[in-house]
């Protein structure tokens, strides 16, 4: 039993959004000249010529940033209900949320000290 209101607009938006790429691609297919020489496959104007394949090994630094992001993303999800229900919860909840944040600040300090936040 679905009770949330306002989601018919979301559905409408989704339908329109799914139409946009299909319409754009088909319209450009109708309008553009077909064919074209070998230049069509080259890099456009001031683009840099690609070197090597795209299947290269990435640097571990990307993983460190993603890792820190995951942890603080989850923290956001926990703090959001607290912020919305703040007026009903009172002082005790404020202290508890501060403890929660303090523990995660320890995590932030650790990541900082270990250099996980630097692009060294």
């Amino acid at each position: 039993m679905f009770v949330l209101s306002g989601y018919e607009y979301l559905l409408g938006f989704l339908l329109v959004c799914s139409l946009v790429p299909a319409l754009a691609l088909s319209a450009s297919k109708l309008l553009r000249p077909s064919g074209g020489g070998p230049e069509r496959r080259t890099t456009y104007e001031s683009g840099v010529e690609p070197i090597g394949g795209a299947w290269i090994q990435f640097n571990i630094r990307y993983y460190m940033f993603a890792l820190v992001f995951v942890i603080f993303d989850v923290e956001t999800v926990f703090l959001y209900p607290w912020a919305v229900a703040f007026h009903r919860l009172g002082l005790l909840a404020f202290v508890e949320a501060l403890i929660f944040i303090a523990i995660l600040v320890v995590a932030l300090v650790y990541a900082w000290r270990k250099g996980a936040l630097e692009w060294s």
């Binding site: 993983y63 890792l67 995951v70 942890i71 993303d73 989850v74 999800v77 926990f78």
Partner: peptide, 17 residues
Amino acid sequence: TVFVITVAAAEAAVGLA
């Protein structure tokens, strides 16, 4: 579910490491 999502995120971070 929110707690399970948290545990899943922590598990993914450590597991991938």
